[in-house]
C-alpha cells in the first residue's frame, strides 16, 4: 500500500505539484481515503440494506423472523425456496420465453434495417430514418390504451404473444437507432475489400457486419431483457392466466398471495432477481450499457 502511494505520488498526473513533500501527500491521501471510504460505505450499505434483509429473511421461518428480526437465524430454512419456486418459476419461464422471442424478433427487424440505413444511400433514407426515430418520442403510456384495444381486436389478449409484440416493436426502434450509429462508424475499407472479393450486400451483412456489431447486438439484447423484467403495466392489463405473467406483474401478484409468509415471500423475490443478478455479474459492461441505453439514444 505504502509503496503504491509513494509510486502514485511520484507520478506527475496523479500526484501533487512537484516539489511538495511526498510525506504530506501520503497522509493527506490516506485521510481522504478513510473519510471518503467511510461515507461511501454508509451509502453502499443503505442502498443494499433492503436486499441484505431480503436474503437473511428468505431463509427464516416466521418464528425466526419475529424472534431474530435483525440478525440471521439458524438453522436456515431452504425449504422457503422450494415453496417460492413452485409459484415464481412459471413467471421466470414466461419471462425467459418473452425475452427470447423479443430478442430474436428485434434483431430480425432491427439489424438489417440498421445496416441499410448505415451503409447505403437511397432516396428517402433520411425521411424513413426520421420516421423511425420519431417513435422514440412516443412514450409507452400513450400507446398503452390504443395498443390494448388493437390486441383485443386481434383477439390475442391473454397469450404470450401479446406480451412479446410490444417488446419487439419498442426495441426495434431503439435498436435501429443505436445499431445504425455503431455500424456507420465501422471503417468503409473493410467493406471495400470484401466488395473487391465479390461479396454482395447480404454476404457483407451476414459475415462481416454482424460479427463486427456483436457489442451493440449484446446491448440491444440486454435492453430487451431489462425491458421484460421491468415492464409492469402491460402484462398486468393484458394477461389473466397466472402462468402467462412475466416477473413484474407476476411478482406483484405473488406478493399479494403470500402476505406475511415472510420466508417464502423473500425467497420468491430473490429467485425473481437471480437472472438479472447473473447478467450483472457476468455481463456487467453490457448490463450498464443497457441501463444507459436512454443516454446513448439521447445523444
Amino acid at each position: 500500500m505504502l509503496v503504491r502511494e509513494k509510486a502514485r505520488a511520484a507520478e506527475p498526473t496523479a500526484g501533487p505539484v512537484a516539489g511538495r513533500a511526498a510525506k504530506v501527500w501520503m497522509t493527506r491521501t490516506r485521510r481522504t481515503d478513510l473519510m471518503a471510504g467511510a461515507v461511501l460505505s454508509v451509502l453502499a450499505f443503505a442502498g443494499l440494506f433492503p436486499y441484505l434483509f431480503m436474503l437473511a429473511a428468505s431463509v427464516k421461518d416466521n418464528e425466526q423472523f419475529y424472534e431474530s428480526y435483525w440478525a440471521p437465524a439458524w438453522p436456515i430454512r431452504l425449504g422457503n425456496y422450494a415453496v417460492a419456486w413452485e409459484q415464481v418459476s412459471p413467471y421466470l419461464f414466461t419471462s425467459f420465453v418473452v425475452a427470447g422471442f423479443a430478442i430474436v424478433g428485434t434483431l430480425a427487424l432491427a439489424s438489417a434495417a440498421a445496416f441499410v440505413f448505415a451503409r447505403y444511400r437511397f432516396p428517402g433514407r433520411n425521411l424513413l430514418f426520421g420516421l423511425v426515430a420519431a417513435l422514440l418520442m412516443v412514450p409507452a403510456v400513450t400507446s398503452l390504451i390504443p395498443l390494448f384495444v388493437l390486441m383485443r381486436d386481434l383477439d390475442i389478449l391473454d397469450t404470450r404473444l401479446v406480451l412479446i409484440i410490444p417488446h419487439i416493436t419498442g426495441n426495434t426502434v431503439f435498436g435501429i437507432v443505436i445499431m445504425r450509429t455503431y455500424m456507420a462508424q465501422i471503417p468503409e475499407e473493410i467493406f471495400e475489400a470484401a466488395r473487391v472479393d465479390g461479396a454482395g450486400g447480404i454476404r457483407m451483412f451476414v459475415s462481416l457486419m454482424m460479427p463486427l456489431a456483436r457489442p451493440v447486438v449484446g446491448t440491444v439484447a440486454l435492453v430487451t431483457v431489462l425491458g421484460v423484467w421491468n415492464d409492469y403495466f402491460w402484462p398486468l392489463l393484458t394477461v389473466q392466466t397466472d402462468e402467462f405473467r412475466t416477473i413484474p406483474a407476476g411478482l406483484a401478484f405473488f406478493a399479494n398471495q403470500n402476505v406475511q409468509q415472510w420466508g417464502p415471500l423473500f425467497a420468491g423475490y430473490t429467485l425473481a432477481s437471480l437472472p438479472l443478478l447473473l447478467m450483472f455479474t457476468f455481463l456487467s459492461k453490457w448490463f450498464l450499457a443497457g441501463i444507459q441505453g436512454g443516454i446513448v439514444s439521447g445523444k
Binding site: L40, G47, L48, W229, N230, Y232, I247, S273, L288
Partner: peptide
C-alpha cells in the same frame, strides 16, 4: 457496491 442494487428488478 454502490451500483449493485441496479442489478435487482425494479419491481423487487
Amino acid at each position: 457496491l454502490l451500483i449493485l442494487p441496479l442489478a435487482f428488478p425494479a419491481v423487487v
